[in-house]
Design a protein around this nucleic acid. Structure first.
Length: 647
RNA sequence: GCUGGUGUAGCACAGUCGGUAGUGCAUCUCACUCGUAAUGAGAAGGUCGCGUGUUCGAUUCACGUCACCAGCUCCA
């Protein structure tokens, strides 16, 4: 006899073995409703798994992340089955569940058109309706390979060959379709009630650009149509915030064919927001003991050879000239490090000089691959709040912490603090060519950073192979409206470049030593930050960051004199004010200002002139009634001084 | 760089199965002098992304190229 215990405490006994589903149904049939999978003794499994020992079982539904994954993983198999039915020559690669859905990679020389997707969806509907049972079976390695060879699935053969010798090789079979898969899966295709194929794109086999590019079909799946429709609607709503659309519509930036890719024009509104951020960051950094440098935007190749960028980063640099032909070859700088190091080298340093904190609002140039550019998020020229901090080993933790605190402060101030995640980016020991330094140096730098991060209780994930070539990083990550993650802020520990540059300090014992260097940014690059702020606020910036804070709307031409008086009063108080001098109806001008997302409108007519007041309309709350100009100015100043994030 | 898609007036989009193009908003002019999300009338605005080819004729077809979009790879 075995005892099965549900997580709510109810138990039952069974002979020798029982499937998870039967056990749950026997103990509490209600729980089988909406069940997609289960957790048995802490392990996620399918409902048809057989249990042979005393076990604790809980049921997974669509409300559980793992439940969603099971449904969507099966949906990806249904997709593959439909594709094989319609296009039998197609080869299968991989098809996992992902955050908001699933995908499957296919090798199909003809690709898939939008029409094909419709056909595939129709076939998938049939498969769901057929209510096909999924059966799991395992095979010894050689038989598994033989099966996949017989089925003419070379990618699957390759996958099996790469599995460890002792791995259990499992397959899932659903009717006329069998796939190599670790599972778990649904017991049948029927619960995949609502799904949609979203797009077809290219993806390299095994994520390696030297491999063949496969066709990836993305889709999503839910247990009912309402949830699917809600999700699609949410996606559409999110896309309305897309900075690349909204930022252009609202006049923050534009691009011009003849200038080139990744080289956006920041229009007055975008430039204003960046100026406000930049001033704030520079002043704040200064208050925290950082000194500003201004270093050249380009240098001879000699500098980059010292910094090893010439060997490790040349593809990413804009190089002017040809070393074969030209006496001097220049390159635009892709980062500020080697330039600020020259400031350090300007004189002999003592342990008393450290920590030395150099900041710079630094314009950088990177020759990104042509397909990488994206609005303001990924560009070829950008300006970053860059900084390098040279310190002694005993200062490293406190200084790293203070750099992190500045970054956190900035995230809170602009309102992105809740939206970020942390990645501890480490080197990849299996890919030595990408990095300089020894294994011991990497172990040391990474263990120092780990200690600091653990000590500060930073909830990070580890990114293998994401480190800079000279050291590990703490990357502060953020997702855009499409769910794509980018690095917003980075803090790096570098114990290699100081030696390359001959940067030293004389320690208390009279010995010359290399300082540790922290590479860091406090708000990341301004273009990217602007993009994410546009998406965060849907263009409706908090008052302290709004390009225009107040729009004055005279009721008619009769009120222009008074409008001018108020305009000047606001302007003299440092408020960013515009007046709509056009001869238009009041309602029209309000609508325009509202669509421009100006935080405050002031309506000025006979009534206000008589009362010597202003009527305030808030973008968010509508008509706020009238008040004196002094009161209104105080209100704006309060928003600005407190960096209120009300929007 | 790769896969797929897109490119028609400032913006959003029609359209031409090959005979040089429209609608709405915006712009300009005139009238209205207006009270919290669009007043009315008129005018102007486009070598249909760029180049080459096919053709009597190309915005439409083909090829190339540039830019934009999504994804992959890469990265702040």
């Amino acid at each position: 006899m075995i005892t099965i215990k549900l997580n709510d405490g109810k138990t039952a006994e069974f002979e020798n073995s029982v499937t998870v589903y039967d056990a749950v149904r026997t103990i509490d049939a209600e729980l089988t409703k909406g069940a997609l999978g289960a957790v048995v003794n802490g392990e996620v499994t399918g409902l048809t798994t057989t249990v042979t020992t005393d076990s604790t079982v809980s049921v997974l539904t669509f409300n559980d992340d793992e439940g969603k994954r099971i449904l969507r993983h099966t949906a990806s198999h249904i997709l593959a089955q439909a594709v094989k039915r319609l296009y039998p020559e197609t080869k299968l690669a991989i098809g996992p569940a992902i955050d908001n859905g699933f995908y499957y990679d296919f090798d199909n020389d003809n690709g898939f058109t939008a029409e094909d997707l419709k056909k595939i969806e129709a076939e998938m509907k049939k498969i769901v309706k057929e209510n096909i049972k999924l059966e799991r079976f395992t095979l010894p390695r050689s038989e598994a390979i033989k099966l996949m060879k017989d089925m003419n699935e070379p990618y699957k053969v390759e996958l099996i060959e790469d599995l460890p010798e002792d791995a259990e090789i499992s397959f899932y079979k659903q009717g006329d379709f069998t796939d190599l898969c670790a599972g778990p899966h649904l017991f049948s295709t029927a619960p995949v009630k609502a799904f949609k194929l979203m797009s077809v794109t290219g993806a390299y086999w095994r994520g390696n650009e030297n491999n063949k590019m496969l066709r990836r079909i993305y889709g999503t799946a839910f247990t009912n149509k309402d949830d699917l429709n809600e999700y699609i609607q949410q996606q559409e709503e999110a896309r309305k915030r897309d900075h690349n659309k909204l930022g252009r519509e609202l006049g923050f930036f534009t691009t011009v064919d003849t200038i080139g890719q990744g080289l956006p024009i920041l229009l007055p509104k975008g430039a204003k927001v960046i100026q406000l951020l930049q001033r704030y960051v520079e002043d704040y950094e200064y208050s925290k003991g950082w000194q500003m440098t201004k270093t050249p935007l380009m240098a001879k190749s000699d500098l980059y050879k010292v910094s090893v960028h010439w060997d490790h980063y040349q593809d990413g640099m804009i190089v002017m000239g040809d070393e074969e032909k030209d006496k001097e070859v220049f390159a635009l700088r892709p980062m500020t490090c080697p330039f600020q190091y020259q400031a350090y080298l300007n004189k002999a340093r003592s342990y008393r000089d450290l920590p030395l904190r150099y900041s710079e609002t630094s314009t950088l140039f990177r020759n990104e691959a042509s397909g990488e550019m994206h609005g303001l998020i990924r560009v070829r020229q950008f300006t970053i709040s860059e900084g390098h901090l040279m310190c002694r080993p005993d200062q490293l933790e406190a200084e790293f912490k203070s750099c992190l605190e500045i970054a956190m402060h900035m995230l809170k101030t602009v309102g992105l603090y809740e939206d970020v995640s942390y990645r501890f980016s480490q080197w990849d020991p299996d890919n030595r060519d990408k990095y300089i330094g020894t294994e011991e140096q990497w172990d040391e730098a990474q263990s120092i950073m780990k200690k600091i991060l653990d000590h500060l209780e930073i909830p990070y994930v580890i990114g293998i192979g994401e480190a800079a070539f000279y050291g590990p990083k703490l990357d502060i990550q953020i997702k855009n409206v499409f769910g794509k993650e980018d690095t917003l802020i980075t803090l790096q520990i570098d114990q290699m470049l100081a030696e390359k540059f001959g940067m030293e300090y004389t320690d208390t014992d009279g010995e010359k030593k290399n300082p540790y260097i922290i590479h860091r940014t406090s708000i990341g690059c301004y273009e990217r930050t602007l993009a994410l702020l546009i998406e965060k606020y849907a263009g409706a910036f908090p008052t302290w960051l709004a390009p225009t804070q107040v729009q004055i709307i005279p009721v008619s031409e009769k009120h222009f004199d008074y409008a001018e008086k108020i305009h000047n009063a606001l302007k003299n108080s440092g408020v960013r004010v515009e007046t709509d001098w056009r001869n238009e109806k009041l309602g029209y001008k309000i609508r325009e200002a509202q669509l421009e997302k100006v935080p405050y409108m002031l309506i000025l007519g006979d009534k206000e002139i008589e009362e010597n007041a202003v009527s305030v309309r808030s973008r968010k709350d509508g008509d706020l009634g009238s008040q004196s100009i002094e009161e209104f100015i105080a209100r704006i100043k309060d928003d600005v001084d407190n960096k209120t994030l009300n929007y």
